[in-house]
Design a protein around this nucleic acid. Sequence first.
DNA 1: TTATCATATGAGCATCTGTTCATATGATAA
DNA 2: TTATCATATGAACAGATGCTCATATGATAA
Lengths: 121, 121
Amino acid sequence: MPHRNDMTDLCDCRCIHEKRVTTATAEALPEQDNQQMAQLFKAMGDANRLKILWALDHGEMCVCDIAAFLQVSESAVSHQLRLLRQLQLVSNRREGPILYYHLNDHHVAALMQTALEHTRE
Amino acid sequence: MPHRNDMTDLCDCRCIHEKRVTTATAEALPEQDNQQMAQLFKAMGDANRLKILWALDHGEMCVCDIAAFLQVSESAVSHQLRLLRQLQLVSNRREGPILYYHLNDHHVAALMQTALEHTRE
DNA sequence: TTATCATATGAGCATCTGTTCATATGATAA
DNA sequence: TTATCATATGAACAGATGCTCATATGATAA
C-alpha cells in the first residue's frame, strides 16, 4: 500500500479548502520576517536566557553577576549572552575590565509582559 | 592550574555586585511562571509553527489546508498542532470528519505583532 | 458491516542546542 | 614586563527537537 508522499499531491488531491490555502499564502509574512521572528522567540524560549532577560529588564548586570544569579558557569552565561547579542536583544558597555549588559529595546520587555499575562490565565 | 568549577565559589569569590545579584533573585519570576513563558516562546520559536499561528490568526484552517500551505506532510503538521494544543495556543472544532484549528486567545497575535515590530527596526 | 477519509500517534533517526572543559583575549595592576 | 582578572571562544558531547514512516483511531459513506 503506497503512501502519499508527493508534494504536488498535497495540493492537487487532499486540499480541502483551496481558497483558504491561497489566502493564507497571500497573507503570509515574507520568509525573512518569519525567520527573524522565529529566531527572536527561540532566543526567548530557553529558561535561563529568559531569566537573564527578565533580570536585565530590572537593571544592568555583568557576566559574573548573572552567573551567580543563575547558578551556572560564567562560560555558559557568556555563550548565552553572545546569542542574545547577535540577535540584538542585549548590548554591553565596558567599565574597565567589566562588561555590563543591558536590554537593547523595549520590545523584549513588552513580549515578556504579554507572555506572562498569557500564562497566568 | 586548577579551574574554578565550584558553585559556592561563584557566589563567594567572583561575585562583583552582590547586592545586584540579591535584588535580581528577589525580583525574579517564580520558577513555574518562567518555565511556562519559556515554553510559550519556544513553541513560537519554530519557523513552521510560527507560520501556522500567523495563518490561523487570519482564519481557521484544517490540517490538510495547513499542510498544503506549508508544503510539508500532514503528519508533521499534526505533530506540531499537538504541541500547540498542549500549550493552549490553538484549539479545534470538529465538523464531520474535519478538524478546524484556530488561535486560542489574543495574546499570541499580540506577541507576533510586537515581535514583528522588533525585527523591522 | 466494510471502505475510505481526516487526523493522530509512536518509533526511529538526523540535526540542533546548551552545557562543560580547556584555552584565548584584552584590560588592569604590580 | 608579568600576573591576574573578567570575559570570550572552540571543541566535544549528552539531550532535545522536528521530520518521516508506518500504523491507529474515529467519523462518514456505501
